[in-house]
Design a binder for these strands. Structure first.
Length: 586
RNA sequence: GUCCCCGUAGCUCAACUGGAUAGAGCACCUGCCUUCUAAGCAGGUGGUUGUGGGUUCGAUUCCCGCCGGGGACGCCA
């Protein structure tokens, strides 16, 4: 039997054929709207009949009956078809079809090939994490990094060439103060021990020593001017700041499984802004206002009066100028088909103005316009809704958060599995602890603020990474005991179609993986995949509890081993797409 | 003042972008380990989806008005 990766798409196509065959009035306008259904209704449901019938003042159930009568024999053989409610068409796949799908998409390459159609041949630039240099990363930097990496992996899996670009905050007035502090108070021993810690201290000293209106502030500004004019000493210092910062960031990124292709920060675009001023002016988009160069958007309720300032009155560039230059660079140099920027929601206005401007600018110059996306999330705050602080008043550092996560996970491992070797306990603690932190951000879809809580971030019960990892570990355990590798062809050879309620329920869930990946990829919301994996792990756990795998009957054993192998494949693949590592034992 | 986001069970969150009886976890209660890992499974208690209208076959979802929380609004990024 032939099955496709996206069964929903296959059913949708069959319904379109049926619409034409049934002679529906303007059948070409009929949109089947097939989606995954709640299990009690079937595997997939077509909702399109309702809207179609309503627009033409037809009885939706009668239209549904016409369509069902005209369905291809292949689809009628493959599924139970039922008309329900006001006019839904429900499709429940037969066990033999479930088995066929599981056999056809039984390997990682097969899954990847099936999913790759969505963004095949496209190049996407993803801009995420983007911390400021010379400062430690804190918990506020976590979400962009975790969500951004998951989006990268989803885009790659769905066929795109992904360019990971860390748009560092590595330019601006703060460097004058940092250089001022560095030249006076730098402690070589502290720099050697923990460079970024020392840079933070020097920045604070520099900042405190240069209050508004002071001659010290003029000196700090002079340092900045020297840097901008290419003074060799200051440029060398700036380079050193960048180097030690990136090295420190990479230690965090390594723990999160992140590696950037480029670190093109604001400094990279600093000399690419003249063109922006010129082209925005010559296309009539920008105008002088109070000495600055600004863009208004007359069609917009607020941006018709709220300016997008692309050049300051003193002639200097700002965030807007470099972001415009960045968009052009990504479109032209990387030939991006899509650009994704991941930041917290407070920058929503800025990006709305930016993208409005880019669209008009590119249209006026006849440049090829990539898809432009701003992926937002809520800010991380303390219990009081204000910026997050520890008891001592400092922000919580990302390193401390990850350390704490591993420590808590280690304590649980010691309690649950004291007999494992120490090395393995540590490895489990790393994967479970970091995974819990990642999943805390990937399991929810909220643009409201995120109130930080250690217990929430490091929760190990319920809808968390450990629950998913535990299901993975249990499946590995079964294969260890069976003495075969997951996916072993001989072990699965005699598999029959799923039969028991738990087998069928699990098999049905497995076939929904493509829909979860599609949904998460198209909407750039990884939590849809997280939700699916959680539900899949739940189905597996129920199955694991209800049906013993390693039984004597060869056909039953084979089909259950197949179900285990596919569950493992999809859980490991899916968790990998979210950026989590998995275990074989825990 | 203008505009944006958010408000769902005691708590933390879902709800496939308008679909069917709004679902999970935590907490609380009842069962299940001589049986592939109990970091688990089965079940129970818990809802006027902030609020009042509107749109329609159908609204947590869209529109309007309130209430509450957060945010952005001319030279920071």
């Amino acid at each position: 039997m032939h099955v496709t990766f996206q069964l929903a798409t296959e059913i949708e196509a069959a319904l379109l054929v049926a619409a034409a065959a049934a002679g529906l009035a303007d059948a070409a306008d009929f949109k089947p709207d097939v989606r995954t259904a709640e299990a009690r209704h079937g595997d997939f449901q077509a909702n399109g009949v309702l809207g179609y019938a309503k627009a033409r003042k037809l009885n939706p159930r009668a239209v549904a009956e016409q369509l069902v009568a005209a369905l291809s024999p292949a689809l009628r053989d493959a599924s139970d078809v039922a008309i329900a409610g006001p006019g839904f068409i429900n499709f429940t796949l037969k066990p033999a079809v479930l088995l066929a799908w599981l056999r056809q998409f039984g390997t990682a390459p097969a899954l990847r090939a099936g999913a790759a159609a969505a963004h095949a041949g496209q190049t996407w630039v993803v801009d995420y994490s983007s911390p400021n240099t010379a400062k430690q990363m804190h918990v506020g930097h976590l979400r962009s990094a975790v969500i951004g990496e998951a989006i990268c992996r989803l885009l790659e899996f769905t066929g795109a060439k992904v360019i990971r670009d860390n748009h560092l905050g590595d330019w601006g007035t703060q460097f004058g103060k940092l250089i001022y502090g560095y030249k006076r108070w730098a402690d070589p021993a502290a720099l050697a021990a923990d460079a970024i810690e020392e840079l933070e201290r020097l920045y604070k000293l520099g900042n405190n020593a240069t209050p508004d209106g002071s001659p010290e502030l003029d000196e700090a500004r002079a340092e900045l001017v020297k840097l901008q004019q290419g003074d060799s000493e200051n440029v060398a210092l700036w380079q050193k700041f960048s180097d030690v910062s990136l090295a420190a960031f990479q230690k965090i990124y390594d723990r999160l499984g992140i590696r950037f292709d480029h670190n093109l920060g604001e400094s990279f675009y600093n000399d690419k802004v003249e063109r922006i001023y010129r082209e925005l002016t010559e296309t009539g988009l920008a105008q002088e206002s109070e000495g600055a160069l600004v863009v208004f958007h007359p069609e917009h309720p607020r941006f018709k009066t709220q300016p997008f300032i692309v050049r300051k009155a003193d002639g200097a560039s700002n965030y807007a100028s470099t972001d415009l230059a960045t968009a052009a660079y990504r479109a032209e140099h990387f030939k991006a088909d899509g650009i994704v920027v991941v930041t917290d929601f407070r920058q929503a206005d800025h990006f709305e103005q930016l993208y409005l401007t880019v669209r008009k600018w590119f249209a006026a110059k006849n440049y090829r316009l990539p898809e432009l996306h701003h992926v937002t999330f809520g800010a991380v705050t303390g219990e009081d809704g204000k910026a997050l602080k520890t008891r001592s008043g400092d922000v919580i550092r990302l390193k401390a958060l990850l350390d704490e996560a591993e420590d808590r996970a280690y304590a649980i491992v010691l309690e649950k599995n004291p007999d494992l070797p120490e090395d393995e306990r540590r490895e489990i603690a790393r994967i479970v602890g970091i995974g819990a932190v990642q999943y805390a951000d990937l399991s929810q879809n909220r643009s409201s603020n995120y109130v930080f809580s250690w217990d929430k971030m490091l929760a190990l019960d319920g809808n968390t990474a450990p629950y998913l990892l535990y299901a993975v570990a249990r499946i590995h355990s079964i294969f260890r005991k069976a003495g075969v590798a997951p996916g072993d062809a001989a072990a699965e050879a005699g598999a029959t179609s799923p039969e028991t309620a738990a087998e069928i329920s699990l098999a049905r869930k497995l076939t929904k993986f493509p829909d979860a990946v599609r949904l998460a990829g198209e909407s750039l919301r990884p939590h849809f995949l997280g939700l699916y994996l959680f539900e899949l792990a739940g189905e597996y756990s129920s199955f694991n509890n209800a049906d013993k795998v390693l039984v004597d009957e060869p056909a039953v054993r084979a089909r259950r081993l197949l179900l285990c192998a596919r569950t493992l494949l999809l859980l490991e693949t899916g968790l990998g797409l979210l950026g989590l590592r998995t275990l074989t034992r825990m």
